[in-house]
Design a protein around this nucleic acid. Structure first.
Lengths: 337, 337
DNA sequence: GTGAAAGCGCTAACAG
DNA sequence: CTGTTAGCGCTTTCAC
């Protein structure tokens, strides 16, 4: 059982002084006799005094805790982001409470609610793939909570955002495939309403257009990032009269699955069909052939998000421009193309 | 800016009653007029009242926050454990504060210190690979903090522990290699002082002994789980007059590196040398040939740890047997053997 | 320099 | 059933 915790009153009693003086000594208040301070500090050490952050938080109305809302910590992408956030805000003494939504908008909502009650000092949020209703985060905004949105961002709110290099990523990758002589390039996209998916698709379309390649609606498939969706898409494409000679995807996980499916069908990669991904997940370097992919640096995304949060926290009463930070990437060419 | 937060006093004033009554109404205390309660609840909703957990925590001396100390959230193993913990304790309304030590005993110590100040209700701890001094966690124990140790456990403290199937894992794997006709089986181990590494090595030795295979000290290499250590070990083994015909490792990451090194040297896997891992990390299914490995279920380890924590938290004044839970595993045979 | 008192938001006796 | 009082641990006026 957690026994009685040492308080400033204990120190005060032992020293025969008032708790105010102890408080002053402990908080480096100048109005305190050096001798007294010395005695207090010593006694604090002797008694192993630990300040009670709850009491402090109650007074200052802050917890030095930040809420981090993510879909799934087991995805390397989010794990790296979390790591970046922690390292960025940890320097300033902020702790992070991680809450996973498991891609459920409902759980996301509950998590935000719960962390709001816990009085976190701010939120760093990445929405689920299915979040369409942003009332919850708008409520946070109205209440004045410091907010940063990343990866799957909430538009229309004047808050800092950090996103991946969506448009450029697919533009560059598609361009690369075209340079490799591919003519019928399929796209494995994400949910239609997701901004990141939209932008990546635009990058893909833009590259096609610039190279005078006609757009074939048959060659675009929307997924919810689920394995089943990928299988359906690949089957459909392979059954086409004129199947694709390349498949680019907006996420590495999908690309890896595509490669496995093609392999099991006896389709040669990249001989028959080239495959490209997005993200440079750890998996992309392990599969064979290695996956050509547009590298993202999720750790840096996390750091950028963390820094934005610190900015807001610092100048609480100042203006923080709701700038959107795009984390640059680069094409990593491997055997799959 | 976060404006004035609504308190029970605001509700009380609006309704012209005392704050005690409001408190009672809100906490489902039976001693309150149903009509009054209704009015309070309505007003609370109207004003969008949010209870202040800090004030509550101050009184009850609890935060419903748990500290989770891990080396690195970017390792799939730890990410899965964290996920398991969160899902287990989340049901009971506990939140988790994740702190990464980055494998630094010093940072581990600081993290524990910081979370202690934040008054978390308990700790779930996995030490760094280099932690040898357990004073910090012993101090926590003395102070009466609910404690659960997992994966890299702290021995000698009567607290619940959850570990992987260390001995069996390497015993089974080694046995499997012997059945495949391998005679000179090398072992890529971890730091000598790590209990998990010791047990796995014992499993390896036990299998050799039972099959009448002599132990060759040359064939055992200790690493700090670093890539450089692995390279040194592999080089040494390949330079041997009689090189190994199999390499088993106590962690998948090492096995994957071994495979890559062997491949780059033109050594055939499993033709010349078979390779086996431990953990069944996502990577083990992606490399080629697929890595034979002893599956662990880190998510379940996390769940078990979380449940132990809830047990302690529940019967704070009762006895919680410091049982050690071994999360069972099984051999997953793939192409590498 | 130091002590007494008020108060952060809330619950929990204690009186009615 | 409800209001008053005290107090969780601490900081911060306000006196002296």
């Amino acid at each position: 059982m957690k026994g009685h915790q040492v308080t400033i009153i204990d120190i005060a009693k032992k020293l025969g002084i008032s708790k105010s003086t102890v408080s002053r000594a402990l908080t480096n208040n100048p109005n305190v006799n050096p001798e007294t301070r010395k005695a207090v500090l010593e006694m604090a050490k002797t008694l192993d005094y630990q300040p009670n952050m709850l009491a402090l938080g109650l007074i200052k109305n802050e917890t030095r805790m930040l809420g981090v809302i993510i879909p799934d910590i087991q995805k390397p992408f989010f794990a790296a982001i979390v790591s970046g956030i922690q390292h960025a805000v940890g320097r300033m003494g902020y702790r992070t409470i991680i809450a996973q939504s498991d891609e459920s908008p409902q759980i996301e909502k509950e998590n935000i609610q719960a962390l709001m009650l816990s009085r976190v000092d701010g939120f760093l949020i990445c929405h689920t793939r299915d979040t369409r209703n942003f009332d919850q985060i708008k409520l946070l905004y109205q209440k004045g909570f410091p907010l940063v949105s990343f990866a799957r961002i909430c538009q229309g709110l004047p808050i800092p955002k950090v996103v991946e290099d969506d448009f450029n990523g697919l533009y560059t990758t598609t361009q690369h495939l075209i340079e490799r002589g591919r003519k019928r390039i399929a796209l494995l996209a994400g949910p239609k309403h997701l901004q990141a998916s939209k932008l990546r698709q635009q990058g893909y379309l833009s590259a096609l257009r610039q190279n005078g390649i006609g757009f074939d609606n048959e060659l675009v498939a929307h997924t919810r990032f689920l394995a089943d969706d990928v299988a359906v898409a690949v089957n459909r494409w392979l059954a086409l009269a004129e199947p694709p000679d390349a498949i680019c995807t907006i996420y590495d996980g999908g690309a890896v699955q595509v490669m496995q499916l093609l392999k099991s069908r006896g389709v040669n990669v990249p001989g028959d069909i080239a495959v490209a991904g997005f993200g440079n997940d750890p998996a992309s370097g392990l599969v064979e052939p290695g996956l050509t992919t547009f590298e993202q640096r999720p750790y840096e995304i996390g750091q950028a998000a963390g820094k934005h949060m610190l900015d807001i926290l610092k100048k609480r009463f100042g203006d923080v421009p709701p700038e959107i930070t795009i984390s640059e990437g680069r094409l990593v060419v491997r055997g799959s193309t």
